[in-house]
Write a protein that binds this DNA or RNA. Structure first.
Lengths: 195, 195
DNA sequence: ACGCGAAACGGATAGCTCATCCGCATGTGT
DNA sequence: ACACATGCGGATGAGCTATCCGTTTCGCGT
């Protein structure tokens, strides 16, 4: 961790390239927010760029999706750190999971990135590992103090979060309904996890 | 319900067509069991038939998928009926949900069919409604006796089941791990639903 | 300011999957 | 056996992914 890799490291050198990179990302962000499945041809057309340009910056759809999701992942990594400073292990654990599901149902990119086992960008892998590590610590603390049932494993965190997000998407047609629904489902899950 | 519609009603008239219909379904069943995403071109090749033949019998991937899932849906409808005869509302409710998730993680076709809002085949809509109606009755019974928290709604059943199935697929690479994992997750959910 | 090399652009293009359409073959009733 | 209807099958087109390469643009050194 001597030289942390940040977004800037992967932005291109030339001005036009940097501008296009940002532009592509902006358009992609819009499409993701619309719920559109994010096709690179689409992105190129809506950005007024050639297909080649888009593909040079982001070799695959996955790469673009992961880049779109990166800021959100960074925020979650920060949340995890912050939660670890709370005194009550259970509250900290619950608060962290709440943040995670809220992010997931707010940003469709996040679920796909979280659910896929093999990432394209190293940065994504790194962030996911960091978030998972924080989650594992929070879980361990809560489990050790007897707040969480002992048979819950680190490896269950990501699947359960994705499951709640998926359930929320199945339930709600409109994005407005998603946040309360997700909170309700998480609430149920937390009751189930509580010892 | 005077004249129940069954599978036979949608099989073609001519012998060769009927044979091909069955054959396509068998091949599709195999592919789904393998976890393959079920592409109609694929089905045609593996069945030794023309693409046109497959598309005539099943206009879309969805139609084929729903037909593949139909027997399983019928079984679940039966389970729901049977569960309603049990005396203990909570046990009946839990047993039914267990059957549902077990089916879902055993048969990948089921999750997709359950999660999609608009069905292609009337039969699928009918069966889903039937299953949901049974689930709603079981839930109502369990809720009325105070076994289940009052804020759980009928409309939550399908999303929650799909969520658990999804979480299970995210968790387990190998099909063998899926059943125990799904049971564990459902167990947690049931604790959360219990009043 | 100018020119040159490198970097980036853009679209033509190839490969792939989905889906349709229609001439041909095959089954079925007379 | 014949004729008609029904079903077959692949050729075909539309859409998306991804690549490749000739052309343009940038920015640095002179």
């Amino acid at each position: 961790m001597a030289y942390p890799i940040s977004l800037e490291d992967m932005t291109p050198q030339r001005k036009d390239a940097a501008r296009n990179w940002e532009h592509i990302l902006t358009v992609a962000r819009e499409l993701v927010d619309e719920g559109t499945p994010l096709q690179l041809n689409d992105v190129a057309r809506r950005a007024g760029l050639g297909v080649g340009t888009v593909y040079r910056h982001f070799p695959t759809t996955e790469a673009l999706l992961e880049t779109v999701a990166t800021p959100c992942l960074e925020a979650l990594a920060g949340c995890g750190q912050q939660a670890l400073t709370h005194n009550d292990p259970w509250t900290a654990f619950a608060a962290f999971l709440t943040k995670v599901v809220e992010s997931q149902v707010t940003d469709p990119a996040l679920v796909k990135v979280a659910a896929s086992a093999h990432d394209v960008l190293p940065r994504t892998t790194e962030l996911k590992a960091q978030i998972l590590a924080n989650g594992a610590k929070l879980l361990a603390r809560a489990r050790d103090t007897g707040a969480v049932r002992p048979d819950v494993d680190d490896a269950d965190l990501v699947p359960l979060m994705c499951g709640i997000a998926y359930a929320t998407y199945v339930h709600s047609a409109s994005p407005a309904d998603r946040l309360p629904t997700a909170r309700r489902y998480l609430d149920t899950l937390l009751r189930g996890l509580h010892a």
